[in-house]
């Protein structure tokens, strides 16, 4: 009896051990290394020296482009996550309706998500090219414009294009998350609400939104992490030009490390980014869990 009790105590941990080991080797160990590097002197050639305290962090924060990059990152994450969530939610509502060709529409929606981000960004680069870009060609052929338009006439507009591509590739993920939530809602709830005289908005507010909230929570938290860490779109479209004005934190620390060879501040920035993400995800999860408990 005693042996059986002991076994039930430690058996789950044995089953968990392989996963814990893998996570420790491939996730926790690299994170610890980055933390250690951020407090170390790193030469231009990559040779790791001694402990330098917070010098790398101070240097990173004092870099001229730091403020611009942080603001860009904030705009990038907020715009892509919020707009893709809204758009994804609307598309999911549409795709949840019965209509001819629904399966095809759902399949098409997967394409932007299934294609690599570098390909997506490169394709959009070609679409908005001033010279022989697809968008200009179509508009010229339709006679809507008489002369090619420079769709990237300023860095602010270029940044908006980057955000748009970010939204375009993120929407399918949100749509499918919400769609899975919508499909799990019992149809009788809507029938009962209809019989009680509830309209579209009332059903949306009182049935749909509360029921898909867990799906939205998952997609939003994952999107915050994915979008914050997204590298290919910004790097492919502008490489942060002009002078880091379209960089986000991830592309900026890459440029710092491998173009300017300032590896110390780059490592410090990656730790700052990690902590920001931990805080964002933590706050969001706690607030959502509280609301769920209230419900």
């Amino acid at each position: 009896m005693n042996t059986g009790l002991n076994r039930t105590k430690w058996e789950p941990y044995v089953w968990l051990l392989p996963s814990i080991l893998l996570i420790a080797i491939f996730v926790i160990f690299p994170i610890l290394i980055v933390f250690k590097l951020s407090f170390s002197e790193i030469s231009k050639a990559g040779v790791i020296g001694g402990f330098v305290g917070f010098d790398n962090y101070v240097e990173a924060v004092r870099l001229p482009a730091f403020k611009t990059v942080m603001l860009n990152t904030l705009w990038w994450v907020l715009s892509v996550v919020i707009l893709s969530t809204v758009l994804g939610f609307i598309i999911a509502l549409v795709l949840n309706q019965q209509f001819h060709g629904r399966k095809i529409a759902r399949s098409i929606l997967v394409f932007p998500w299934a294609t690599s981000l570098v390909i997506q960004a490169s394709v959009w680069n070609y679409i908005i090219k001033a010279e022989y870009g697809n968008l200009n060609n179509v508009l010229l052929n339709l006679g809507i414009i008489q002369q090619a338009i420079n769709w990237r006439s300023s860095y602010q507009i270029e940044f908006v294009w980057e955000c748009w591509v970010g939204i375009f590739v993120t929407v399918p993920f949100v749509t499918f998350c919400v769609l899975s939530g919508l499909q799990s809602i019992d149809g009788s709830l809507y029938e009962a609400a209809t019989m009680d005289g509830a309209g579209f908005w009332s059903k949306l507010r009182n049935i749909t939104l509360p029921m898909v909230r867990p799906s939205l929570t998952v997609s939003t938290v994952l999107n915050i992490i994915y979008v914050f860490n997204s590298f290919p779109i910004v790097y492919t479209m502008t490489k942060g030009a002009p002078a880091h004005k379209t960089d986000t934190m991830i592309t900026y620390l890459y440029m710092l490390s491998f173009y300017e060879r300032r590896k110390g501040p780059a490592t410090a920035l990656s730790v700052i980014g990690f902590l920001i993400l931990c805080i964002c995800a933590g706050i969001y999860m706690v607030s959502v869990m509280r609301k769920e408990e209230e419900l």
Binding site: A130, N150, S153, Y155, A241, P242
Partner: peptide, 11 residues
């Protein structure tokens, strides 16, 4: 600035 070049030299 005088329009003699390609429009987006930074990218």
């Amino acid at each position: 600035n005088d329009g003699y070049t390609n429009p987006n030299p930074a990218t």
